[in-house]
């Protein structure tokens, strides 16, 4: 799928152009994360790519109703419907007017549920699912449609971290093993940076910057679009103000080192190799001026006493 000089927006009433002259491409086996500020038109662009919304200008090449499956933000409110039935809707483009699923269709539904590891939920009513399960079922529904392209609009919104990671990992796997071309609109900056093959970055100039996440980080494209407030992209962490004006030297390795550093920086210390004050960390032991501590909290209390 690719677009040629695509302009997206609303022509009716007062014309509203959201994007102009887009030349984008989606390739098989790629997970693309589509990012940008709220209200910039990500959903509209996705609907246009899916052929559900008329472009203002230009065209989308290589899609029809049978090649794109969607996962939307709107929640299916119907009760009295089983997970199996909901996933079965994915087979609708293949059915005639009577909407009767054949044995082959039923099999595809089971396969789709197996792909998201939710076979055990098949007979459950959809209003009994958790938000995370519901989102996975909606992905299964899209998979049952057997399309080369999968467009998902904020599939991880309202989910806890564990569910968010699970869904992104699933999409990552689907792109690699099933060769799907997946476009995910998301606000999960940290997850997108770690998981996406390509990032589409919607800017306020009605264009979409594309590139490898790492390249976009280093070129400063993210900072420009998001005008990040306190998140340091170069390190992938929240930026801490070194308000104590005190440098400490930290010696050690592994997770213990990283989390100690995190605690110190959050409390306003600066880590430097040339500092006089030295902290040595090892397995569950923190050593400061020959005195040993068994928790970071104990270490910090001591450090703060020095400050007074």
């Amino acid at each position: 799928m690719h677009t040629e000089n695509l302009s997206v927006g609303y022509a009716a009433g007062t014309p509203l152009v959201l994007f102009e002259g887009l030349n984008l491409q989606l390739s098989a086996g790629e997970l693309v994360c589509f990012m940008g500020p709220n209200g910039i038109g990500k959903s509209t662009l996705m609907r246009t790519l899916a052929g559900l919304h008329q472009p203002i200008d230009g065209k989308v090449v290589g899609v029809d109703v049978k090649s794109v499956a969607l996962v939307l933000t709107e929640r299916v409110a119907t009760t009295n419907m089983t997970v199996h039935e909901l996933v079965g809707f994915g087979r609708y483009p293949y059915l005639n007017w009577s909407a009767k699923l054949s044995t082959v269709d039923e099999q595809k539904v089971d396969e789709a549920l197996a792909m998201v590891h939710l076979t055990y939920l098949s007979a459950k009513k959809i209003n009994e699912l958790s938000d995370g399960q519901m989102q996975m079922v909606m992905i299964a529904r899209a998979l049952a449609q057997e399309t080369p392209y999968l467009l998902l609009d904020e599939p991880t919104a309202h989910l806890d971290l564990n569910n968010r990671v699970e869904i992104m990992k699933l999409l990552r796997t689907l792109a690699r093993t099933a060769g799907k071309s997946i476009l995910v609109a998301t606000h999960e900056l940290d997850l997108a940076l770690q998981m996406a093959d390509v990032i589409w970055l919607a800017t306020r100039n009605k264009e979409v910057i594309t590139g490898m996440p790492e390249d976009l980080v280093l070129s400063g494209a993210f900072d420009e679009v998001f005008q990040l407030k306190g998140f340091d992209l170069k390190t992938g962490k929240v930026f801490h103000e070194p308000f104590r004006n005190r440098t400490v030297k930290l010696e050690g390795t592994g997770p213990v080192y990283l989390w100690t550093k995190n605690a110190l920086e959050r409390n306003g210390f600066t880590i430097s190799d040339t500092a006089a004050l030295k902290i040595a960390v090892s397995e569950q032991r923190w050593k400061l001026n020959e005195k040993e501590f068994t928790t970071i909290s104990g270490l910090l209390t001591r450090l703060l006493q020095f400050e007074k």
Partner: peptide, 22 residues
Amino acid sequence: ISQVKSLNARLLGDTYAQSLGI
């Protein structure tokens, strides 16, 4: 009766129904 498929698809909401070719 001829609209059974579209009636079912409408349960998911208009956009989903549209994306299913209704």
